[in-house]
Design a protein around this nucleic acid. Structure first.
Lengths: 342, 342
DNA sequence: CTGAAAGCGCTTACAG
DNA sequence: CTGAAAGCGCTTACAG
């Protein structure tokens, strides 16, 4: 069953394809009668314009691309939901690609999206990304690009982020406020900006409170597929290295939960012996025991905001107006739970 | 910066567009020399075929649509990952839409995908879907359609599922094996086939073990956004209604975790007082306390398999071969953990 | 081995 | 108010 074309509608009504096309698109220069006839027939024949042809003519696909490091991930899947729901409102479809934290894959995927001629691209960087030529390529093609969460400061495009430094500061300050004196930090991988910023926020809170910064209290985790295990390993190592730590600020909830599991196993009491603050507010954090104090990171809102900004830029380019890059910072909040109850 | 076209390449080399096109597509009837020249120039100019034009000519988009009830969901996001990763291997892109468990939305989205002319559609039904005309529409357009997880038996298309009845039977039998005598069931919504099948598996296990089926032991939850709360409410109600229940088989891990939280709060010990088996094996289930016995549901594999089947059907239709609908059943396994340790 | 021509199904500037 | 014509950028059957 072949789809109905404009030509067939025109023939059945003995009018031209031009007129049929105009009638369906509310052009003012079509008689009411003709318009009515065309619309009716289109409806009964279940006519749907051929997107391929429309795209070719209009040079836009009403489709955007999304490159994201992980999908099975509470925060990122919330972002995806935010993007899709907002895009749908504006009549845009979203193609999703997962970079799996690999720079190589990410580069290939950007290329794919470019050759697919999506109208714009949304990206959160892979941990492994240190070179940005694939992104400058997007920008040089005047294709709207918005980065979110894991961004690169150096790339000139719009960004939607949280203030990671401030949030980490808040988290650390909270540990200090409840009386912690020796505060460790499990940081994320070395490259990502947000992992760097969280580390800096931790450090600044210490210094502002006259607590000396001790490099040996900082542990690294890659925060890839193995986050939970990394949390366990780091916790174990920490117990070996230091017997005086009474608080930890941990880069990600999942790592924090791994650490808690390990502490549990070794008989270390939370929060009595060690208080813990995580980051992201995964749903899980509110149901484990003890419940985890953490920083709420607004994933859904971030997705929505990122799409909105992309949409603005798509419209701007279409109307040949200058598009202004913007950096949008969303609010975070400290969620106090049992893991820091004193 | 306008993208390079075939025409420009042809002009620069003083050959025809036809030859340029053939050279890039490995047609055998192009001289080696010409082919080399074209390829080289294409590369230096960073030529990328205009997908819109290619789609219009070939009538395929190398894009498929995916309609899924929820995205922020451990099982479904695993399925998405499976689909995307497999699709990428075959050069297909995936457009993702979320039905939010709403029939109306689902219908609209199918329509959208159809008018987008995707090459095929993958769907897991919304809880609210009881009418299937939107799906028969897809089939009548000879567009490949594969359902997974939440399917409708009545729709004639390929399906990728688990044997929910058998898995539920296993779960219930496990409770019986460890000595439970009064076993309750928190079932899912009334319409979805998998929720019906899990209920039937539960019932059959009871009967096969000469345990009378008691309707008042079955509680319903919609399993939408409120799963966790539903688990709590049901648990509370159960404690009011029955003081002799010693085991519960629960439709979904998230509901089970809600129930466990409530039991905890009310001082009911798991597994000493009540043993619990969940369903799905969310990551969370292995980190809460006590850890949750559950049925492992292979999300990633389901996604992969669903795409593979869809791909086969896309190829079959392209080659005008008959496409055979297939029902593929994936294995599940019981994961024994602390919530049923006796 | 090469190329002219038709055509995929639209949109839109232009003429009447 | 209507329509003929050009064109978006490809692919492919056909002729030479």
């Amino acid at each position: 069953m072949k789809p109905v074309t404009l030509k067939e509608i025109a023939e059945q009504l003995n009018i031209s394809v031009t007129t049929a096309s105009k009638a369906l698109k509310d052009y003012p220069d079509v008689s009411k009668k003709t318009r009515g006839l065309v619309r009716e027939l289109a409806k009964t024949l279940n006519y749907k314009p051929n997107t391929f042809a429309v795209n070719l003519r209009t040079k836009e696909s009403k489709t955007i691309g999304l490159v994201i490091p992980v999908i099975v991930h509470h925060f990122f899947s919330s972002v995806i939901k935010g993007i899709i729901s907002q895009a749908e409102k504006k009549g845009y479809l979203v193609i999703i690609l997962q970079s799996n934290e690999s720079y190589e894959l990410e580069k290939k995927q950007i290329d794919l999206l470019l050759s697919q001629r999506v109208d714009g691209i949304l990206i959160s960087l892979a941990n492994g990304t240190a070179d940005f030529s694939h992104l400058t390529e997007v920008i040089s093609q005047e294709k709207p690009l918005v980065m979110f969460d894991k961004i690169a400061k150096i790339v000139k495009c719009s960004k939607v982020i949280i203030d990671d430094r401030k949030a980490a500061y808040m988290a650390t300050q909270h540990l200090i406020d409840i009386g912690c004196k020796r505060i460790a930090h499990f940081r994320g991988a070395l490259l990502p900006q947000n992992s760097i910023d969280r580390f800096l926020g931790y450090k600044k809170a210490l210094l502002d409170n006259n607590i000396p910064y001790d490099h040996s209290l900082v542990y690294i985790c890659e925060c890839g597929d193995m986050s939970f295990e990394e949390g366990k390993t780091n916790a174990q190592q920490l117990l070996k290295d230091h017997d005086d730590v009474d608080g930890i600020f941990i880069n990600t909830d999942l790592v924090a939960i791994g650490a808690m599991t390990q502490f549990n196993k070794q008989g270390v009491k939370i929060p009595e012996d060690i208080s813990i603050v995580g980051f992201s507010n995964w749903f899980m954090s509110s149901v484990i025991s003890p419940t985890l104090t953490t920083i709420d990171q607004p994933g859904f809102k971030m997705g929505k905001t990122a799409f909105k900004q992309l949409y603005k830029e798509i419209k701007a380019i279409k109307n040949k107006k200058p598009k202004a890059s913007k950096i949008i910072t969303l609010d975070t909040a400290l969620i106090e739970r049992e893991s820091t109850k004193k």
